[in-house]
Simulated scan of single mutants.
Amino acid sequence: MNESQRTVLVVGATGSVGRYVVASGIDHGFAVRALVRDAHRAELFPSGVEVVVGDLTRAETLCRAVAGIDAIVFTQGTYGNPAAAEAVDYGGVRNVLTALQGHKARIALMTAIGTTNRKGSHDWKRRAERLVRASGLPYTIVRPAWFDYNEPDQNRLVMLQGDKPLSGDPSDGAIARRQIAEVLVRSLASAAALRKTFELHSERGAEQKDFDPIFASLQADAAGALDGARDKPNMPLDDEPAYVVADLDQVMAH
């Protein structure tokens, strides 16, 4: 490996978006490290991808995964089960940040549209976002619309901010998995994407060649804020579980 090559850890690498992130990371010149629970999943990846075994729900198993990395892309996700969301969507982010032990890395975190709607498991995605912001690490947070419900000619990227009413079906927006991955990976090298939190949609038209002007059009999250720049203030920290507040304190201490 070229000594100047940056290493990106892909969390959720075997998932439907994570596999695209692995491919995009390779395309953009990263040394890609894939975190898996089962070593046999290594066969899913192209030659040259470093596979590391670890359990997102146990921070002590993640030290090798984060050793020497330059960036992390989080794509793990659960849907409809608050307990699983707490353990994986939230706990996985907390445990990777804990394993870093103060090591600096650029972060791209995938959550979902509707993260701030206070419905079920989405609260845990929002808490994961808060951990990333509280960490003080450079980050981009991407909230994709419905995966792969876009039409064949619907490839023009749209990045939105601010809460809006949702119907809970693909009429709320759509984006290709491949494009989600491309946005996550490209954000890692973009100064314009720093401290940006946004929904990712697509509209009819060709995909833009340069993503930086789209990133640059967005409002950055306020320094030290726990929520996104235009998020609804509907999750008071005083109402949060004590252990969630303790997790925030621990992340900030690093």
Rank of each mutant, 00 (worst) to 15 (best):
V158E: 08
Y139G: 13
A39D: 05
T111F: 01
S217M: 13
L218V: 02
D238P: 01
A71G: 06
E151K: 15
N150L: 02
Y79Q: 13
D70A: 13
P46H: 09
R106A: 15
P82K: 00
Q219F: 01
G15A: 12
Y90R: 15
L188A: 11
L56Q: 06
D148L: 07
V132Q: 01
E182C: 13
V88K: 10
G48W: 09
G136P: 14
Y20C: 06
G25Y: 03
G136Y: 11
S217H: 03
G224F: 05
A192P: 01
A242H: 05
V36T: 10
A246L: 08
P144T: 04
A84K: 12
A246R: 15
V73M: 10
V21L: 08
Y243K: 11
I180H: 04
A13S: 15
V53A: 14
R118F: 00
T140P: 00
L9R: 07
G205A: 08
I113A: 06
D172C: 02
T140F: 03
H201N: 11
D38M: 12
Q101I: 00
G29S: 14
V32L: 13
S16H: 14
I141L: 09
G120S: 15
R204F: 05
V21I: 09
P82C: 10
L166W: 00
I26N: 07
A174G: 04
H28F: 11
V22R: 14
D210W: 04
A192S: 11
Y90K: 13
G114H: 07
A42E: 12
G102V: 13
A108K: 00
V93A: 11
P152A: 13
D70P: 12
I69K: 00
S4L: 15
A105E: 06
G168E: 05
V21R: 07
T78I: 01
P46A: 06
N81H: 07
D247M: 13
A246T: 09
A223T: 15
W146G: 10
R64T: 14
I113P: 09
S24D: 10
P236R: 06
A67G: 01
A42T: 08
V251Q: 01
S121Q: 02
K209P: 12
E207Y: 03
A174F: 06
E199L: 08
Q154C: 12
W124G: 00
R126S: 08
